Simulated scan of single mutants.
Amino acid sequence: MARTTRLSVCRRKRRFADEGEAMAVALAATITLRPYRCDRCFGFHLTGRTKGKRSL
């Protein structure tokens, strides 16, 4: 089941124009991050939630 992003969370997070840009930042980070498409702004954000998800 897909999670929906709360508008308040979307507004706090950095927005990336495309998945490639978000992926580059995620790979350069010192912690495990994963990009996802936001259902509110239709941009990409990063999340630290990785349970049940494929790693990069």
Rank of each mutant, 00 (worst) to 15 (best):
A22M: 09
A17Q: 14
R34K: 12
F44C: 02
T5W: 12
R12Y: 02
L46Y: 05
G43V: 02
T30S: 08
L56A: 10
P35K: 03
A29S: 15
G20H: 03
R40T: 13
L46P: 01
L7E: 04
L56N: 13
G43T: 11
A24Y: 01
G48N: 02
A2I: 13
A24S: 06
T50F: 05
A2K: 10
D39A: 03
A22H: 14
L33M: 14
L56W: 05
A29G: 10
V9P: 01
F42K: 09
Y36C: 08
T32A: 15
K13T: 06
I31W: 15
T4I: 13
C38N: 06
A2D: 14
G20T: 08
S55T: 11
R49D: 09
R6T: 02
R40W: 03
A26N: 03
M1G: 13
F16M: 01
R37A: 12
R15V: 01
L7K: 02
F42L: 11
K53D: 08
L46G: 02
A17G: 13
R12L: 09
S8V: 05
A22W: 11
R11N: 11
L7F: 00
V25T: 04
A26W: 00
G43P: 00
R11H: 07
R3W: 12
A17W: 04
F42S: 07
V25L: 04
R34T: 03
T5V: 08
K51M: 07
R49W: 08
M23K: 12
A17P: 05
K51W: 13
F44R: 01
M1T: 07
D18Q: 03
